[in-house]
Design a protein around this nucleic acid. Structure first.
Lengths: 251, 251
DNA sequence: CGTGATATTGATTCCACTCAATATGAGTGG
DNA sequence: CCACTCATATTGAGTGGAATCAATATCACG
């Protein structure tokens, strides 16, 4: 039996309950990880893509840079997240990805992946589900930026981060959010100044406090109500995934 | 040899060059289509999903409705587009989809699909590529709404529509855009009033004219420059798809 | 203890919103 | 064929939320 408590395994098990054989394969996948530092690029737009990445530890993000020098953060990746799923399709990285914190990543070359899929088809489906969930998150951010005011937008983002954490719900009232106000501004389509003011305003309402990258959510329920947050898009009904194969088949 | 000129086939052939056998399978896929009217719902959030839809004719869109009654258009679908790819993963529709115009759709039940994939694995890959491109479009709209001003935003949207049309580039200077200013506002996170003003402003600059849902692009190059449009995200490098199978194999 | 990154606060500006009035045009029935 | 209606679009006036500019403040770190 392998290290079942790895972040990635815990993340995958939100979608499929894994067999021992599958756990073994995944443990193998994370076998050799390498350390990366905050600010390091994992890849850049246009790079050739021939690996899947597992973010074993740390946070990272994908971004688009605009001609005027501003940038838009597209996705935020948390420990355990799998990066580069979409690129499986066409072999070209389509946005810049860099580390927000120090961390560890393990790489998985496409040929090894194919091999993995042959032995555990359900993992392929799991990737498809994850890609799908990413799209839902992107859509939700579009809604945020297009339709919600600054306070709702920030509140919604905090709710989403909270919901994505792997810790049990009870332990998610305070957590580390390793994004500077500049990062938050770039993610939410706001100015840094207004991020600051909006945090003040949320604090005034007794909803949230932030100090040195630490978030304390004082009133989760009221925050979600304010944000119009509905976590359904983060869940997934794994029923339609291929059923767990009989143990014999994967001996 | 089947009806090669169907919208869907032309769309798929942007990604893979299809064999005769694959063309036959696809023609079968579109065999029985049914008419739908502008405003008809194709499905709603939460519906059980067990079919893929091909939009044989007409335009449609997916949308999220907010508690305050406003809505955000997420995706715009053009003739030939395939709807419900993501839902293959978890069997639940995740947004409302309705027709913008009259049209025709043909449905494809999942069991039939699996059968299809067995006979033509490359079509499965093609779906994955398409899902991926959709995500890229969503990301690009997020960038638009978060970072571009009204003029660039509308200009960018028009450039994208133009690029997605199946007509040869020379014939895309004028086209039908069957979205009301209300629809455009809902898609771009603006007010109807400002859509109107922005069209005026684009007309003043000699870039675009709109009359009764008809768009005339006067200066495509300058429009793209203004919008910061780069169509790369709409293309896809199909190299990494499984190679075309030998003819014998699919007899 | 100084330095540079990060955050707060105040003053001002501006883009896009809202409200409201008017225009245009397609469709309908007298 | 014209008058009426309803949906859609245009235009003007006034407002406001968030941006920008600018001046501190806080804090981690060497």
């Amino acid at each position: 039996m392998q290290d079942v408590s790895s972040h990635m395994v815990r993340r995958l098990q939100r979608f499929v309950s894994l067999t021992n054989a599958e756990l073994a394969l995944l443990a193998d996948m994370e076998r050799d990880s390498r350390a990366v530092s905050a600010g390091d690029w994992l890849w850049q737009e246009g790079d050739a893509a021939d690996t899947l990445l597992v973010l074993t530890e740390g946070w990272s993000c994908s971004a688009r840079y605009l001609p005027d020098g501003s940038r838009q953060l597209l996705e935020i990746f948390l420990p355990g997240d799998i990066l580069g799923i979409g690129e499986l399709a066409d072999g070209k990285r389509r946005s810049d990805v860099s580390m927000l914190t120090d961390g560890r990543i393990s790489e998985y070359a496409y040929p090894r992946l194919r091999e993995l899929f042959e032995r555990a088809e359900r993992l392929r489906s799991a990737l498809f589900v994850i890609a799908n969930q990413r799209q839902a998150m992107l859509a939700e951010r579009l809604v945020s930026v297009a339709r919600r005011n600054a306070r709702q937008r920030l509140a919604h983002f905090l709710c989403e981060c909270r919901a994505r954490l792997l810790e049990p719900a009870s332990a998610r009232q305070r957590f580390l959010l390793p994004l500077s106000q500049q990062d938050l501004a770039d993610a939410l389509g706001m100015s840094t100044v207004h991020i600051s003011r909006t945090f003040s305003s949320l604090a005034c309402l007794g909803l949230v406090r932030r100090r040195h990258y630490h978030i304390l959510i004082l009133d989760p329920a009221r925050l979600e109500r304010l944000a119009g947050f509905n976590g359904a898009y983060l869940q997934c009904d794994p029923q339609l995934l291929a059923p767990e194969p009989p143990a014999a088949e994967i001996q």
